[in-house]
Simulated assay, not measured.
Amino acid sequence: MAYPTIAVANAFIEKAQQGFLPDLDPMKLQKLIFYAQSWHLRLYNEPLVDDFFAKWPYGPVIPSLYHEVKRYGSKPITNLISNVSWKGDDMVIVTPTIPHCDQKTTALIDKIIEVYGPLRGTQLSYLTHQEGTAWSETEKEGAVIPNDMLAKHIK
């Protein structure tokens, strides 16, 4: 089951708030979710997030997430992402999260943080640009990077 992108983003933001993930700026968040999605597709043959990555100049980006966190610029993200939703006639604030009982997803996020978390967003961007990556194999800037390419090219 794929989660809303914001739920996965909030999982990483929570880890940063708890001190387990240094310098979580918007670029780093995008790249961590890219690696989480790629590894989830490779290991479990199903997407982790319900959105797509596009080829942008600084690496793979989920455009909807970009717009949620762009106000931070290159500064650390400090707050969970919430949205306004309607429940009947009432407006409610919703903060999507991954249930704590989903140990498979939690373990994957923890592993992504262990492996990629010490790197800065610019370093992660550099890694996504290497020859043979899904980003480098996607021809046109702005194009969607298909999930099968994410799974195929993650090493």
Rank of each mutant, 00 (worst) to 15 (best):
A2G: 11
V8C: 01
N10Q: 09
I13G: 10
I13L: 09
K15M: 05
A16G: 04
Q18F: 10
G19M: 01
G19I: 00
L21P: 06
L24F: 12
L24C: 08
K28W: 06
L29H: 04
K31S: 01
K31H: 02
K31W: 04
Y35P: 06
Q37L: 08
W39R: 13
L41R: 07
L43V: 04
Y44S: 07
L48T: 08
V49I: 15
F52M: 04
A54I: 11
P57D: 13
P57I: 03
P57W: 00
Y58S: 12
P60G: 10
V61H: 09
P63H: 04
S64F: 04
L65T: 10
L65Y: 00
K70Q: 14
S74R: 12
K75R: 14
K75M: 10
P76K: 05
I77A: 03
I77D: 02
I77M: 03
T78D: 06
L80R: 13
I81C: 04
V84D: 03
S85F: 01
K87N: 11
K87I: 09
D90Q: 11
V94T: 12
P96L: 09
P99F: 04
P99T: 07
H100M: 07
H100R: 13
H100I: 10
D102T: 02
Q103S: 13
K104V: 13
K104L: 14
K104I: 15
T106A: 11
A107C: 06
A107K: 12
L108E: 08
I109S: 12
I109V: 15
I109Y: 10
I112Q: 02
I113H: 03
V115T: 14
P118L: 08
T122R: 09
T122P: 00
L124Y: 05
Y126I: 02
L127S: 02
H129C: 05
G132Q: 06
S136F: 05
E137K: 13
E137W: 00
K140E: 14
E141Q: 09
G142E: 02
A143M: 00
L150N: 14
K155C: 08
